[in-house]
Design a protein around this nucleic acid. Structure first.
Lengths: 180, 180
DNA sequence: TATTTATGTCAACAAAACTGACATATTTCA
DNA sequence: TGAAATATGTCAGTTTTGTTGACATAAATA
């Protein structure tokens, strides 16, 4: 029964650090419950988690192009097309031709879309706030840890697109400006 | 552009707490990168993430029954059957009839299975350790937060099955003992 | 003008979940 | 003991969400 607690020799031989089995499992359980929060609501709208993700990013990065959305979600355009089309057809998202480059489609959440995005964020936000309070931990501490868990290449994006930070849009416009 | 930072009125009206948009996104990005760590390895073995999860829990809760595995994973038996059968057929997991109840199948990882489970845990563990170091945070703090993120009903299971804790097996045997 | 780029779309496919139905062996209960 | 409940396995069909590959269109760019 003791040898099931995984080979300690290999563990120390490879990394001289502990195998974080506890945190690995906790991440699984915590994330599963966290994502299950909006599920019931999504079901009522006939949407799935893929729709949730698209609506979230379009709402919080208004004016995002299709290419930018693909890069954030890391899926193929064919995969995105299905859910995005549904969100557009049902009036949660609108597309407008890019003012500088008319090939691009800038994406915006409608009022209806913003309201749904908020309704989906509320239970997740409540879970996080409750957990922070119960554990007696400051938001910034968890934020630091999670940020460090993200691949370094991706962290730049996070800095540019802090939800609520307005620098993001300006930055995007700058890039497109200099590209001409 | 400012109204996109979501209706502050509703936010305060509902919960008097902040909408944790930053943490919601960070959880998405962090978990995605975290789960992508073992992907390359899994691909080489012709397995997917579903196999990873099954192998993980069978390795760290040896003697688990099919029913217990289903409860932890929260999937249907038809869904489990497919991946479990593959793991058994390829010699990563074995089944033995429960000694007390011969209808049950107790699941055990083979040596081969334990080795793969370890190899899959290593990159995830490394990411966690690096993140803790970079953020200068103690493991216990993150553990407290993640535990509080899990649905309260589930936390009991976590206490019984701390990876590395040996009380789990005894507990299970006790339960089955009294059931007769 | 020719090429590249941004987007859209068609078709086929795969992983991993689901439901519903039914079979078998074993245990439990009246 | 015989009937009912339980643990597991399996067949068949469906859904969601991802994939590849191919090709079309409009707009920008060299």
């Amino acid at each position: 029964m003791t040898e099931v607690t995984l080979p300690v020799r290999e563990q120390t031989a490879c990394t001289d650090e502990s195998l974080q089995l506890g945190l690995i499992e906790l991440l699984f359980f915590a994330y599963r419950d966290f994502t299950s929060d909006p599920d019931e609501l999504l079901l009522q709208y006939g949407f799935g988690r893929a729709h949730h993700r698209v609506l979230h990013f379009v709402t919080h990065r208004p004016g995002m192009t299709v290419a930018e959305l693909l890069e954030v979600l890391r899926i193929t355009k064919q995969s995105l097309a299905r859910v995005l089309k549904q969100l557009i057809d049902t009036g949660y998202i609108i597309q407008i031709p890019g003012p500088r480059d008319r090939r691009q489609r800038e994406l915006y959440a409608t009022q209806k879309g913003k309201e749904l995005a908020l309704a989906l964020a509320l239970p997740q936000s409540r879970r996080i706030n409750t957990a922070l309070r119960e554990a007696g931990i400051d938001r910034a501490v968890v934020e630091q840890f999670l940020r460090a868990m993200v691949n370094p290449e991706r962290r730049r994006q996070l800095d540019r697109h802090q939800p609520g930070a307005l620098a993001a849009e300006d930055d995007r416009h700058d890039r497109r400006g200099t590209a001409r």
